[in-house]
Amino acid sequence: MVLESTLRNIRLVGDGTLKIVERIGATVVFLGLTLTQSATSFRRFDLVIREIFYAGVQSLIIILVSGLFVGMVLGLQGHETLQNYGSEQSVGVLVALSLVRELGPVVAALLFASRAGSAITAEIGLMKATEQLSAMEMMAINPMARVVAPRFWGGVISMPLLAMLFSAMGIIGGFLVAVVLIGVDDGAFWSQMQAAVDFRHDIANGIIKSLVFGIAVSAIATFEGYEASPTAEGVSGATTRTVVSSSLAILALDLVLTAFMLKGWS
C-alpha cells in the first residue's frame, strides 16, 4: 500500500518533469519557427512599430514609476546600511550597480511579462478563439508571419529600452533620496559611481540580459497565445501561464547569465 502510493507520487513527479521539459522544448521550437517567419516583419516594419507601441510604449508608465520607487528604496536602505560603516557616499555605487546589473533587467522584465506579455497572449489567444487565425490562413496568409513574428520582435526591441529606462529612472530615484533628501555629497555620489560602474562589464552586460529576457518573454507569450485552447477558459489559463512561466524563465536565465558574466566569457 505504502509502496504503491510512493510509486504513484514518484510517477507524478516524473510526469510533471516531462511535461515541463516538453513545454520548454515546444516553446524553443516555436521560437525557431517564429524566426524563420520573420522576413515579413522586417520588410514591413510598420507591423513591428505597431507592436512596439502596444508592448513598449504602453508599459512605459509602469516601468518609469516602478523604477523611480525601486531606486528610492535602494537609496534609503543603502544609506541606512552604509552609514554604519561610515561610507554613505558609496550609496551611489550601490544603487547604480544593483540597478544596472540586476534589478533593472530583472524587474523590468517581470513587469513587462505581466503587462505586455499577458496582453500578447490574450490577444493572440482571442484571435485564435474567434477563428481570426484560421481566417488568415484561409486567405493564404501565414499567421506566424503576420501575427506572431511582429509581436515577438516588438517585444524583443522594447525590452532593452524599457530596462535601460528603468535603471536610469532608478538612479534618479536614488539620487533624489540620497543627495536631495538625506544630503549625501553630490560630487562623491556621482564620481564614486562612475569609478565603480564599468561600461562593458556592468552596463553592456545588463543590456544583454534584458535582451535575452525580452526574447524569452516574447517567445513564451506568443507561444502560449498561439497554443491556447480556443475557449474563454483556455485563453485565461494561457495568460496566467505566460506570467508564471515568463517569471520563472527570467529568474532562471538571470542566474545562468550572471554566473557566465562573472566567471565566463568576459
Binding site: E123, M127, T130, E131, S134, A135, E137, M139, A140
Partner: peptide, 21 residues
Amino acid sequence: DLYALRRRLGMMFQFGALFTD
C-alpha cells in the same frame, strides 16, 4: 501550393472572424 490555391478561395467563418484590431 496550398497557399497559391487558397488565393482563389474565399471563406466566411461562423461568427465572421473579423480582425478585431
